[in-house]
């Protein structure tokens, strides 16, 4: 995306964002609470209107498309609140991910491979599962849309540290399959551990960008986000 801006009620929350994710790459957006990560994501997928700039996927302009058309174009977004279908079973949630097509067998295998727990819980109602399981299902449902780009917004929200770590291990394995990833995360060390590159978002603007390694060794990032004096 280029020079994009978005916000609520005419008030810009993020501005002048130049962001690029190459095929097969894992890119992290890091920044503290309120930096604008979620606003940025919502604008990319069409849940919020882009007030300026463009969103382009493989040369196709998605800027003014509504969310369901962006989803069909190949951008899957897993919001922090997950937005599962709580009164439906795990199976139905996954099937709806593939909507309007029949679920792809290979993708389903991949999902079960990543999250064996989902296979065990196929008949359970999504709303009755634990936070970690719901996160797995949200990612699984997003994968069922067979996305070209998978966007994870704060995948560790509300998860115990151990579960959060397991979640990122799954992200790691997902990356190994060649999936293109864009991840927003407050827990910077976790994010930088899987990302190839990262952008640091502060007050709605890109403050820094670089490879994960560069940022990890950047004194400012170390002080502000990695808790190293």
């Amino acid at each position: 995306m280029k020079g994009a801006a978005a916000g609520y009620l005419g008030q810009k929350v993020v501005e002048d964002i130049d962001l690029e994710v190459r095929t097969g790459e894992a890119v992290a957006i890091v920044g503290s609470n309120g930096a604008g990560k979620t606003t940025l994501f919502r604008a990319i997928v069409g849940l919020l209107p882009c007030m300026a700039g463009r969103v382009i996927l493989d040369g196709v302009d998605l800027t003014r498309r509504r969310a369901h058309r962006v989803a069909r174009a190949g951008v899957a977004y897993v919001p922090a609140e997950r937005h599962l279908f709580p009164a439906m079973t795990v199976k139905t949630n996954l099937m709806l991910g593939a909507y309007p097509h029949r679920p792809n067998r290979e993708t389903l295998e991949l999902v079960f491979d990543l999250f064996p727990r989902l296979k065990e819980r196929l008949g359970q109602q999504a709303g009755t599962m634990s936070g970690g399981e719901q996160q797995m299902l949200a990612v699984g449902r997003a994968l069922m849309t067979q996305p070209k780009l998978l966007m994870l917004d704060e995948p560790t929200t509300g998860l115990a540290p151990k579960v959060a770590k397991a979640a990122f291990e799954a992200v790691e394995r997902l990356k190994a399959t060649g999936m293109t990833l864009l991840i927003a995360e407050q827990q910077v060390p976790l994010a930088l551990s899987v990302a190839d590159r990262a952008y640091v978002l502060e007050n709605g603007r890109v403050r820094m960008e670089g490879t994960a390694e560069e940022l990890e060794h950047n004194p400012e990032v170390r002080r502000a986000y990695l808790g190293v004096a």
Partner: peptide, 24 residues
């Protein structure tokens, strides 16, 4: 039916439905 499930998904979570490509 598949379409019926899509309808129920919009009832349960409109944002979730949009994210899987269903037009509310």
């Amino acid at each position: 039916t598949t379409f019926g499930r899509a309808i129920r998904s919009v009832m349960q979570d409109e944002v979730g439905a949009r994210l899987v490509g269903i037009s509310p």
